[in-house]
Amino acid sequence: MKKSKLFMGLGALALVGVLLVAADHIDAPGAMGTSADIADFYAFEPTEGSDNTVFAVDLQSNVLPDLAYGTFDENVLLEINIDTNNDLVEDLVIQAIPRDGKMYFFGPVAPSETGLNGAIMVDAPLGSVDISAETAIVETTANGVSLFAGPRQDAFFFDFFQFNEVIGGTAPLGFKPAGDPNSTDDDDDTAVDTFDGANTMSIVVELPNSLLGSTTGQNALGLEVYKTWVTTNVKQ
């Protein structure tokens, strides 16, 4: 069976410490497999013409055995950083941290300090939402902000095994060709999404662009953009 073979493969890889997983999943020794490990980050317009922006952050992953997964850590602050003037320094932050079964959100607000250390912006509460189990619990605030926190499918897709073969120099043909996505064949000739069946702990915020304001940032094509990134931060 494909799944069991996949799992054996994953276990073997974990044992020998070959843990090169994108997008940011278990990426570095210092953060790998901890409750603060960022797995992925999405930022998008929810529907064409919408005046909202969605930020979705995945923490933790169960794609490999023995990784922290399933519980948001009360000592870990998630911060979505937004640069609105093209200098790669955060002008606004949106923060999320769990307390006793709820995820509390703050911002968007100018942080008390930029850089590697920060504090929770308690004077700028955005709202809170009960942390979901299987079924999504969504909170919508009076100013049109939607909030979610809980386990979700990992939307990332990548043939991670073959990537390791490619960069290790053991795959002369490179990546494998696409196969029938519905095939259950146990063959080694076509590509396999390593993240099929994996879950992650997601935090999703959708908010009106008016709460973020205008931006003078530009991308390489000269289009107006917010420049954004996410960090996890541990209480000292």
Binding site: P46, T47, V54, A56, D58, E134, T135, A136, V138, S146, F148, P151, R152, Q153, D154, A155, F156, F157, F158, D159, Q162, F163, V166, A171, P172, L173, G174, F175, K176, P177, A178, G179, P181, T190, A191, V192, D193, F195, D196, G197, A198, N199, S202, V204, E206
Partner: peptide, 28 residues
């Protein structure tokens, strides 16, 4: 093939993504 295939990993999305908030599919 004489050159390696390095410009696609050959996989498409297997997870469910919805059109309404919170967009990401329920856990498997």
């Amino acid at each position: 093939a004489d050159l390696p295939r390095l410009t696609s990993d050959g996989v498409g999305q297997t997870a469910t993504v919805g059109t309404t908030f919170p967009y990401l599919g329920a856990p498997e």
